[in-house]
């Protein structure tokens, strides 16, 4: 029983991390129709920031806002050039541009932070384990579950329940109309990208305590986030939450049940899911003709 609970919590903590990372991707995809494969770079940058911040002795909890701000700044710069010129281009061109940038960033980070695996020195309140029905479980993962779902909730409120969110959604639905209301939609769109980049950084900072930070992690995380977004149906909020849970549980429990062929089982499950629901778990309504 305790073992099962621990595995469920493991899966949940992984899902929380996936959710937060995937939301950053899905926000720009659904709101701006922009595919940003450099999102993994934001994540890894956030991870490195957390590792060095925790080691610096400054108040540990500041690592998360700092990671948010730093990656948001990077996002703001990239938004000016070259992202902005690619919003209206085809998905293929967006994929190529942002993937190319991620290759560049990956090597720059390897240059700056080295090629070895950096594990953060966790702050004292988050170290150690708690015992659930006599099974040990890392405190940090509980923290991750709580913060992850909390931040996702805030994002949902922001986009779905505030005036700003309404402006963003309206800018996407009918750009011309919103501009006649005197709102600069270009600034709205760049704000969305900056928010998404910041989310990537926070996810990285949070994930560092679980996955550490090393070259190549950016691609691994990007792929999992992309799978999550696609399985979720390309950018509906509900779909992304659902699919983060599905992917998190699939990857965790396939490791429990089929340790040797964990990924084969998990990948096959996702592929089958995509075949059964070709438009994702929660598909946005579209008319084809």
């Amino acid at each position: 029983m305790g073992y099962a609970i621990v595995q469920v919590l493991n899966a949940l903590s992984f899902s929380a991390l996936l959710l937060l990372t995937a939301l950053g991707l899905s926000v720009v995809l659904s709101l701006m129709n922009f595919i940003n494969l450099a999102h993994g770079s934001f994540y890894l940058l956030g991870s490195y920031i957390a590792v060095f911040w925790f080691a610096s002795g400054a108040p540990w909890w500041l690592a998360f806002p700092v990671a948010f701000l730093a990656t948001a700044l990077a996002g703001a710069l990239l938004e000016r050039f070259p992202f902005r010129g690619f919003y209206a281009r085809t998905h293929l061109m967006q994929v190529l541009l942002t993937y190319g940038l991620s290759v560049v960033f990956a090597d720059l980070m390897r240059w700056g932070f080295g090629a070895q695996i950096l594990s953060p020195e966790l702050p004292e309140p988050l170290q150690g384990v708690v015992f659930l029905l006599d099974m040990p479980f890392p405190v940090y993962r509980l923290f991750l579950i709580g913060v992850g779902f909390f931040l996702a909730g805030i994002l949902w409120v922001l986009l779905d329940r505030t005036l700003w969110g309404a402006v963003v959604r309206a800018s996407v639905a009918d750009r011309g109309m919103v501009e006649t209301l005197g709102i600069d939609t270009r600034r709205v769109l760049s704000a969305v990208l900056v928010l998404s980049a910041g989310l990537g950084g926070v996810s990285g900072a949070l994930g560092a305590g679980m996955l550490a930070a090393y070259p190549g992690l950016d691609e691994e995380v990007l792929i999992l986030a992309l799978v999550t977004v696609v399985v979720g149906g390309l950018g509906t909020f509900r779909g992304t939450v659902l699919s983060a849970l599905v992917v998190g549980f699939a990857l965790t429990f396939s490791k429990v049940w089929f340790p040797e062929f964990a990924n084969v089982v998990a990948f096959s499950a996702m592929a089958v899911l995509l075949l059964l629901r070709p438009a994702g778990l929660v598909a946005p309504r579209l008319r084809q003709v």
Partner: peptide, 11 residues
């Protein structure tokens, strides 16, 4: 599009 990208990647 993206579905194809991800499916080919998974396979």
């Amino acid at each position: 599009s993206l579905f194809l990208l991800i499916l080919t990647l998974l396979l």
